[in-house]
Design a protein around this nucleic acid. Structure first.
Lengths: 341, 341
DNA sequence: CTGAAAGCGCTAACAT
DNA sequence: ATGTTAGCGCTTTCAG
């Protein structure tokens, strides 16, 4: 029922607008790109013509000549299942999308799971469809990191694996935050405090463990650290079982994430421990898991949404030729103290 | 340290390959597109040249001339928070991405939250950057539905709002599935079975309620239905509280989703009811919530991942000019019976 | 089987 | 301030 049934077959072009407005294509282009030196009459005529013929610029054509696409990739390098379970990734995605869309950039979501994906991804990045990338959850020695460096594509990492060289990144101070919440837990009078450390192949995981070690200082007992692969509920359960075996009278647990904490709490309660009376538990993230725990979880709040937004802004800044500022790289975290410790 | 430091400045083009191989650009193009009528010598020379100069086709240029982009949009029309909490959306996204990437299509993720987003989206869709779209969680009377119809852009809906006309869709039989699990719950000997119905502005929510009504038949009691806005844990709690108030001796609950069921279970247990002895609870989705419940939740499994994959394949089929097949539109669900009922 | 040439829709000099 | 023109990198007739 539209004005023309074959809208997609012959969409209006700059030329149509120019003819309609009685000017040349160059002038239309100038208006389109907000350039100066256009008379107000011409501008008005062109704007009317655009509306009349229903003109929408063809981005492929524009990309071709401008050598940029107005699109930013967001790479998530993560096993599929975790992507679904980890609320941080969703929040990062949303935050980045919001910032990009304000700047009229399109977010293109790229997921790498298999080796085959990575290869495809590398080709894609080279294809010129993307002006820059945000890389979420890269590991140390990640092939994606290398591919990006080789392409010298504007990129910002979320988190800071140590091998990204001087590439831009945004992150939270995982180590400092872990130190802080561990101390806070110790301040409730706990003596035998353990940690379920996860994702040690990523900086976030490794740094949270380092912060825990810092905070324990002379009280640090390596037997009270259990290492598990993922920030997941199931690994939280497994880690807690192991910890209980090593130290049945453990009275404090720092779980590397809220999901891990939830698993740990369930195991503790099944073992007849009451929380926080017998054991204090703290998590990390302040994700939706935290309020779902019983009792509600004390945890460290990080704004994954802000992280995504900051990463997007960093890429955009690079695109404008700015050096990403050092100050805004580290975002704040705050302790959220509830009832689990 | 690459072969040339200015790779991005001057990337190899078809012309470079042609020169290197000693043929014309036309022949190179034929090889690139796997067309016949190219001598094997020419083909070999060109392939060698491509490898040598590190040629990667410029997609913008190709898009411009071919009038297609090899990219498919996936529109999620959902409040931000729900996107993060709803595991189905993540799974749909991953399923669609997998199918598209196998076909060498890029998934472009589009999120609509505000009215402003919708307008931007409509412009984007018109921009020619997208060959087709997958629409997730459209509502009845959704402006996005109209925009797509007007553009006559190849589209496939996940779910089937009644106002999408003869547009393609993939879905599960929410009504049949709800009927089935309600009957299964009744078969455990429950008398006073209620439902927490959610998201009634979407076909999935409305159909699950209809299935419940079907199953209850003459036993249906409208006072035992509580309507809540979202498929969320918090709404599950709220719904359950209301239900307990209306009918303190309720002995069965069908929750419209697992998250809703989890909220309901927590409220029931806080009210001193034991599950499944006093009250049987069933959910819907078989998401990660289900196993996290205590006792584990009996629920209806739907494969959101398959849904995403099927939607992608449907769009791809439309792009090839095929009529989407009617048979594969409805995907199977299966009851997963655990201990909550 | 292959080369030459036209053009996709747009922007960006270069004139005027 | 505006029109003209030359491409951006690719595919695709059309000749040969």
């Amino acid at each position: 029922m539209g004005p023309m049934s074959n809208e997609r077959r012959h969409r209006a072009t700059v030329k149509d607008v120019a003819t309609e407005a009685g000017v040349s294509r160059g002038t239309v282009s100038r208006v389109l790109n907000g350039q100066p030196y256009v008379s107000s009459e011409a501008r008005a005529a062109i704007e009317a013509a655009i509306a009349k013929v229903g003109f929408v610029p063809n981005r492929a054509a524009r990309s071709l000549v401008m050598q940029r696409t107005q699109a930013i990739g967001l790479i998530v390098h993560e096993p599929h299942s975790l992507f679904i379970e980890d609320p941080n990734i969703g929040a990062i995605l949303l935050g980045a999308n919001a910032a990009l869309s304000e700047a009229d950039y399109q977010l293109s979501f790229l997921i790498a799971d298999s080796a085959r994906d990575i290869e495809r991804l590398a080709r894609y990045l080279t294809g010129g469809l993307i002006d820059g990338v945000i890389v979420v959850s890269a590991r140390e020695g990640d092939p994606i990191t290398k591919a990006i460096a080789q392409l010298d594509l504007p990129a910002t990492f979320v988190g800071h694996p140590h091998d990204i060289g001087d590439a831009a990144y945004v992150a939270i101070d995982n180590r400092g935050a872990a130190r802080e919440i561990t101390r806070r837990l110790a301040a409730t009078g706990r003596q035998r405090i353990g940690m379920i450390a996860a994702a040690l192949d990523r900086d976030s995981g490794a740094d949270r463990l380092a912060g825990f070690v810092d905070a324990r200082g002379n009280d640090f007992d390596p037997r009270l650290v259990q290492r598990v692969p993922l920030y997941s509920y199931a690994d939280g359960q497994a880690g807690m079982r192991a910890l209980l075996e090593t130290c049945p009278d453990i009275d404090g647990v720092f779980a590397a994430s809220d999901a891990v904490a939830a698993g740990a709490m369930d195991v503790l309660q099944a073992a007849g421990k009451s929380i926080p009376q017998d054991v204090g538990v703290v998590g990390f993230d302040d994700s939706s898991w935290a309020l779902r725990c019983d009792p509600p979880l004390s945890t460290m709040r990080q704004s994954a949404n802000e992280l995504g937004r900051a990463a997007a802004e960093s890429v955009l800044a690079q695109l404008r030729g700015e050096k990403p500022s050092t100050e805004s790289r580290i975002l704040e975290c705050t302790v959220v103290w509830r009832e689990s410790a």
